[in-house]
Structures are given as structure tokens and as C-alpha cells.
């Protein structure tokens, strides 16, 4: 029985069609800086950040919104940038991992990730940090279950999550103390 197989491309369609004909203008703020770029309307936010803005800190690990490695904060909410079209970011405020440290100083969250060794290979780390940042921005005093809920969309195969959980919890406490002082 001879058969012709229907060839299909892979599920994680990392390619983005940068066609020259269909261009739209995208204006947004990324890590505090204004960005104006003409892009293909089918371009994903993930690829916009990595390929256009050269922000390679945002990682891709599944391409289907299941692993959280590509998480960035858009208008205060964590989004998996592999499932968001770049044009959806029109007029928005975006923070990536490169935007966490301010004035050459690591943020409390980053410091606690280092201190508690909440990272091993580091590939999930940017996404973890962004999910944690988004959580602490909307809920400065999260319960244990709040942390687990907010972080459960981010997969990590190295750490077993324990140190990540502890780092988020400790960073939350330190940030609250900081806020009280100021």
C-alpha cells in the first residue's frame, strides 16, 4: 500500500512571515522607552521583542503558551508573548526581564532569586521573574496559594520550584518593608 503523507510544519511555528507588503505601525513603550516600528501584522510579540528589539532575555520554550518562558508584562498583566500578536501591544506599556534592574541595580526580586538560588540553567528564569513581578505588583502580600497559583503557568525542570517560591515570598516581604520605610 503506497501512501503519500501530508507534510506539515512543526507545531512550534517559530517562523514569522516578515512580508514587505503588509506593514502596520506599532507604537508602544518597552522598558520605559518609546518604540515605533513598522511590522508585519502577523508578527508575534515574542518575535518582535527578540528579533526587532534584540531583547533576547525573553525566551521561547513551547510556542503554545504552556510553559511561561516567554512571559512579559503588558499593561500590568503577565502575558505569554508567544500567544500575543505584536500589534496587540499598540499603545501599551511592556516590561521584559531587561527592564527589572533600575539604574544599574538589581531589583529586590532579582536579588532574592540569586540569594536563594532560585535558578539553575536559567532558561525559565526571565519568565519566572516576570510572572512574579506581575503578581507582586497586583498583590504585594500574597498568600502561599496566591504565589503557587500565579507561578504555576511557568515550567521549570531544574529547581523543583522550592527556591523560586521562597524567593518570591521573601522578595514580597522585603518590598513591603521597603514601601513602609519610604
Amino acid at each position: 500500500m503506497a501512501q503519500k503523507a501530508e507534510n506539515k510544519a512543526c507545531a512550534m511555528t517559530t517562523a514569522h512571515a516578515e512580508s514587505m507588503e503588509r506593514r502596520v505601525r506599532l507604537t508602544c513603550r518597552v522598558n520605559g522607552q518609546f518604540v515605533v516600528e513598522d511590522i508585519d501584522p502577523t508578527m508575534l510579540l515574542l518575535h518582535f521583542l527578540r528579533d526587532r528589539l534584540k531583547l533576547f532575555g525573553t525566551k521561547e520554550a513551547c510556542g503554545e503558551g504552556e510553559c511561561g518562558a516567554c512571559t512579559v508584562i503588558m499593561n500590568g498583566r503577565p502575558v505569554t508573548s508567544c500567544l500575543v500578536l505584536a500589534i496587540e501591544a499598540e499603545g501599551s506599556e511592556i516590561t521584559t526581564v531587561e527592564g527589572l534592574a533600575k539604574n544599574g541595580e538589581l531589583s529586590i526580586l532579582q536579588q532574592e532569586f540569586i540569594e536563594l538560588d532560585a535558578l539553575q540553567c536559567g532558561f525559565c528564569t526571565p519568565g519566572m521573574l516576570m510572572s512574579a513581578r506581575a503578581l507582586l505588583d497586583r498583590n504585594p502580600d500574597p498568600t502561599d496559594d496566591d504565589i503557587k497559583e500565579a507561578m504555576s503557568g511557568n515550567l521549570c525542570r531544574c529547581t523543583g520550584y522550592r527556591q523560586i517560591f521562597d524567593a518570591v515570598k521573601k522578595a514580597a516581604k522585603r518590598e513591603r518593608e521597603e514601601l513602609k520605610r519610604s
Binding site: F56, V97, E98, A101, L106, Q110, I114, D117, L119
Partner: peptide
């Protein structure tokens, strides 16, 4: 329990993997 020498690169998005 020293922190890993490459931790800062990893928490700031500077670490470059073959993927990058």
C-alpha cells in the same frame, strides 16, 4: 553556599544560549 557565578547574567536576561 556561594551564589552561582553566572546568576546575574541569568536574572537580567543577558545570558546567551545557543537558541539566542
Amino acid at each position: 553556599g556561594y551564589s552561582r557565578a553566572d546568576a546575574t547574567e541569568k536574572v537580567t536576561g543577558q545570558a546567551r544560549y545557543t537558541y539566542d
